[in-house]
């Protein structure tokens, strides 16, 4: 396993522009194993763009993203096995059941122990009783929990969350907070974006804000007592 000294996510001098608009200006940060890093920012500040670049869905104009020792620019498709993404949309097929959705993604990830892994995730995320229902009958909170199950199905070392708290009730938010604690204790690197500063401080060791394309660390994270 990658040692704790080597960050699982390392973003170096990343720049991105769309047309004449600079979205990201020399953004650099790293996330170690067992660490949660939260990113704050207004709508359109570039949070999702940065997240997509870290997830390998988009390419920076300049700079490099590393997952462990591997630069994304030189990595093949196998690198995607090491990243789980909970996007703003749940990335689920609404006509399929929860179980069918996870089985489909398990086939894409070619998992050896798919059925056991799916059952474990569905039970731990309180969806086992609704596993045979079509996803379109799920509430927002249930869809979000299934999206988390999809992202964690292949047990990736790097997990990325794009505003996972949007539209969730208190119970679901508590579930996410608990999930971050578990991921931290199991040595995963978690990168999460949110609009809610108080929540960011409660979730993360370090909190950054993306403003005018620049990344600024915000002092006073409650977790590490800065």
């Amino acid at each position: 396993m990658t040692g704790p000294s080597l960050p699982l996510i390392r973003c170096e001098q990343v720049r991105k522009r769309y047309g004449h608009r600079r979205i990201l200006r020399d953004v650099s940060f790293s996330v170690a194993a067992g660490e949660v890093l939260a990113l704050l920012g207004a709508n359109g500040s570039g949070k999702t763009t940065l997240l997509r670049i870290v997830a390998g869905l988009d390419k920076p104009d300049r700079g490099e993203v590393w997952l462990g020792p591997v630069p994304l620019s030189n990595a093949g498709h196998e690198i995607r096995r090491y990243v789980g993404v909970v996007a703003h949309a749940p990335l689920l097929y609404d006509r399929l059941t929860g179980l069918e959705n996870l089985r489909f993604y398990a086939r894409l990830y070619d998992l050896d122990d798919a059925e056991a892994r799916i059952e474990h995730l569905l039970r731990s995320l309180r969806l086992w009783g609704r596993r045979d229902d079509a996803v379109r009958t799920y509430s927002r909170g249930m869809s979000q929990r299934l999206a988390i199950a999809r992202a964690l199905l292949h047990d990736p070392p790097v997990v990325i969350f794009d505003e996972p708290d949007t539209g969730l009730d208190r119970q679901s938010l508590d579930d996410i907070t608990e999930l971050f604690t578990q991921l931290r204790s199991r040595g995963r690197a978690v990168f999460v974006t949110t609009h809610d500063a108080a929540r960011a401080f409660s979730w993360a060791e370090r909190v950054y804000e993306l403003r005018k394309g620049c990344l600024q660390q915000i002092a006073g994270s409650k977790r590490n007592g800065e």
Partner: peptide, 23 residues
């Protein structure tokens, strides 16, 4: 947990042609 390769290491490609057609 899926493990990232060590520095200079290679990814293990899974499945080969059979894996391709399974997808």
């Amino acid at each position: 947990m899926a493990e990232l390769p060590k520095e200079g290491g290679q990814f293990r490609t899974r499945g080969g042609l059979a894996g391709y057609f399974r997808v």
